[in-house]
Design a protein around this nucleic acid. Structure first.
Lengths: 226, 226
DNA sequence: CGGTTGTTTGAACTGATTCAATCTGTGTGG
DNA sequence: CCACACAGATTGAATCAGTTCAAACAACCG
């Protein structure tokens, strides 16, 4: 795996990466935190095979304040001990745990390139979320989150079963669940989506994208020519 | 520069990195964009020797929507062509431009480790800004920004000449300049700072930190045991 | 079926925006 | 050294998006 071969092609999937790295597979369900704040061991990496994990920061009680989502095929690399983040599955998840990522990279030095690029993608996503929170109104925020979930979660532009509660969507977009509810209803009234229970059908994806100012470029792992 | 020697110690400064990498030095003044959106060449890296750069995203006119700051000793690594960001100095800046970071990393493979860690630090900062925008009230946002500038800019906890206009602080914290002004006045009235023109004196750093919920851990480049 | 979790709706409230005007500091040219 | 121009800072008044609080309703699960 020389880096000359890596550049300009898509990032390898988690499963491709894992072929080279010692790991163990586990399954977990939602509602229990997987790693509490401060409990993430210094050098552990998590590769998500199935499901969705959230990275959150607690300010007081509860798991409010979701900073990032990680979908199947993505990963959570070690943060270092100074970062006080918790990790919780949003839905049932199957994970591959790499107990010592340092050693793995030591054994396969070209992995550092890949993890660098993964980190850069995460940075780009965090910045997009920052724009969401800082600049867009709540309608655009919710619309943007829907678009991102549809794409990153691999559900496509037709329909999906939202994997989040309205409270979780509020935790992500920095609002109250009350307002998330009202905004979802408003988007539905505008004819862009149809909802029944957790199912969401995208009736007008183009308009939803426009409302969200959703430019999926930031999700492209292929940072060609990094 | 073996990575075994890198881990657990602070990130090398820009100038230390540059010893190994071909680069050119330039100086620029504020008010002109250094790189417009979409104009950042695919593989160029910027190391800031002096001054402060902002990374912004334009939504319409003007340089609103500042996503990140980079201070002296920090760097802007290539984003890939899909990210539409602009770069502008906040104050006079002296930069080292590395035209082809790929080649540099190819020549010194252990650099990938370092850039990986730099990206992770940037990710942590972006997430802290996300918390700021999504969860803290405007007083805390401004206080947090002041703390971060004081530390990252190397000004210390005594006093500094703020390198930003109130409009820029608004662009960073997702507010209006009007409100930034009011909040600054309120913080001053509370006796935490004293202002005259651009000079800010920190009268009660501890209380300012508390108000901001500022935990500088996220700034530590030393992600020991990554 | 009962308990729990999540969703929906209403009414009152408030922090921040918007718009607009004024004030202050700094730099420039005469 | 003054007059002017311009960028930035400050203040006020009206408005509004989103919160808060509270209560009812629906879906899910053992």
């Amino acid at each position: 795996m020389k880096h000359e071969q890596i550049r300009g092609i898509p990032l390898p999937s988690a499963s491709e990466l894992l072929a080279d790295i010692p790991h163990q597979i586990i399954e977990i369900g939602p509602r229990r935190a997987f790693r509490e704040a401060g409990q993430m061991s210094g050098n552990e990496a998590i590769f998500i095979l199935e499901g969705i994990l959230s990275i959150y920061k607690t300010d007081g009680i509860g798991g409010r304040n979701i900073l990032a989502l990680r979908f199947a095929g993505e990963s959570i690399l070690p943060h270092g001990p100074t970062l006080d983040l918790g990790i919780k599955p949003m839905i049932d998840a199957r994970l591959a745990l790499v107990p010592d990522l340092d050693r793995a990279v030591g054994d396969h030095p070209d992995l550092a390139w890949i993890f660098w690029r993964i980190s850069q993608r995460n940075e780009a996503i965090a910045q997009e979320w920052l724009i969401n929170a800082a600049r867009r109104d709540t309608k655009a925020r919710i619309a943007h989150l829907l678009c991102e979930i549809a794409i990153r979660g691999g559900y496509g532009e037709e329909k999906m079963a939202i994997p989040l509660t309205q409270q979780q969507m509020a935790d992500i977009t920095g609002q109250t669940s009350v307002n998330v509810n009202r905004v979802l209803a408003e988007i539905e009234r505008a004819g862009l989506i149809r909802r029944q229970n957790r199912q969401i059908e995208f009736l007008d994806w183009a308009e939803l994208r426009r409302m969200a100012a959703f430019q999926p470029g930031y999700l492209e792992a292929d940072l060609a020519g990094i």
